[in-house]
Amino acid sequence: MAGAAEAALLLTWGANSYGQLGLGHKNDVLVPEELEDFPVCLLSIRSITGGGGHSAITTGDGQVLSCGCNSFGQLGLPWVSRSCQIPQQIEAFAEKVVHVAAGLRHALAATEGGLVFQWGTGMASQAKRACRGKMISSFLAAKEPCVVTGLEDVKVKRVTAGSYHSVSLTDGVLYVWGSNKHGQLASQEVFIAEPQKIEAHVFSGEKVEEVWSGWTHLVAKTETAKVFTWGRADYGQLGRSIQEGQVQVLPDAPDTCAQHTWSIPISLPCLTGASQIACGSEHNLAVTGSQCYSWGWNEHGMCGNGTEKNVHSPKPIRALHSAKPVLIGCGAGHSMTLCETRRQTLQK
């Protein structure tokens, strides 16, 4: 008699010039492609994420695997000089990792005990300029996982990262550090050297339950399942239209903070209740019901719709219509989803 057995697929697509898709080659992929012979059981995977040219995965037993570019130490693999095309385990953690995030040239991890680690030197040059000759924190210039100072009195549950900034989430509260050029950290400072709290009034007094980050935009879901987006919108990455004057930046001033209007989160009704969201550099994925949606920058096909045209509002990915998304992740120009399928087996 025929029965069904659960199986899992790990699929990646988009930009792949450093092997960040983990497929063993460096060719761009326009539609989802399955990773074969993965080094751990796919059903044990708990989170997947991508950065500028690197990806990271966590498992149920607290392992972290990474692949792609390592020119700035962003893989946390000191024995890898430039890049690797197959995921490898980071061995520097003394306790289980529960969440991981990847920025442009850095990465973050939150452990079971609530600590946050950061590695990769992508934020170091901006930190040195902003600190004007003062010593910068070790975690801003580490090529292996290093504890982030300033969070000793809180227990972090989740982390996320942008191009040159980092975000952590405790019990309903966001802490941010790094570059604030576009006001994405809800502060008037140009660079925040150590974790700084974002007050609840920014989200209409609600607690934040989840947070995600693009290069210079952020997305947060509150306790009532409202989804807020704020930051840049050049490629449709906010999933909504922007009124003239709502988003402005001081021209030709790379080291100055954007005007305060950039840092005002606004809710996006069409995503209310989304179970998962992931941000790439300028594109996003979301799971609503049993469908996976994408929107934003699409130059490398990372929206998964078979084209390279930008998508300005959330649209379902038709290539995934027969599979139920379990986990999603985005890199700068690539996307990933772990899908649940039903495969027929013979039953004795």
Rank of each mutant, 00 (worst) to 15 (best):
M1A: 08
M1I: 07
G3V: 07
A5I: 10
A7S: 14
L10E: 03
L11T: 14
G14E: 01
K26M: 04
D28R: 15
P39L: 11
L42H: 00
S44W: 06
S44E: 14
I48S: 09
I48D: 02
T49E: 05
G51E: 01
G53L: 01
N70A: 08
S71L: 11
G73A: 03
G76E: 08
L77H: 11
P78E: 10
C84Q: 07
Q85A: 09
I86W: 00
Q89N: 02
A92T: 04
K96W: 01
H99Q: 09
H99K: 13
V100C: 07
A101D: 07
G103C: 09
E112I: 04
E112D: 11
V116N: 14
V116F: 11
F117T: 02
G122S: 05
G122P: 09
R132G: 02
F139S: 07
A142Q: 02
A142L: 01
V147Y: 06
L151H: 02
V154H: 00
K155T: 09
A161Q: 01
G172F: 03
V173Q: 05
V173N: 03
V176T: 08
S179H: 09
S179Q: 05
H182K: 07
A186C: 14
Q188L: 10
E194R: 12
E194M: 13
P195T: 02
Q196M: 08
K197P: 03
E206T: 02
K207T: 04
E209L: 10
E209N: 12
E209Q: 12
W212H: 02
G214Y: 05
W215A: 12
T216H: 11
A220H: 07
A225E: 15
A225M: 08
F228L: 00
W230D: 05
G231T: 10
R232W: 04
Y235G: 05
Q237K: 09
Q246N: 13
L250T: 04
D252M: 09
A253T: 13
T256H: 12
C257H: 12
C257R: 12
W262T: 06
W262C: 13
I264M: 14
L271G: 06
A274F: 04
I277R: 03
G280T: 10
G280M: 01
H283P: 12
H283L: 01
N284C: 09
T288D: 01
Q291K: 15
Y293F: 15
S294L: 06
G296T: 06
E299P: 04
G304K: 06
N305C: 07
N305F: 10
V311D: 08
H312D: 03
I317Q: 10
R318N: 08
A323V: 13
P325T: 02
I328V: 05
G329V: 05
C330I: 09
G333D: 10
M336N: 07
L338H: 00
L338D: 00
T341K: 08
T345Y: 14
K348H: 12
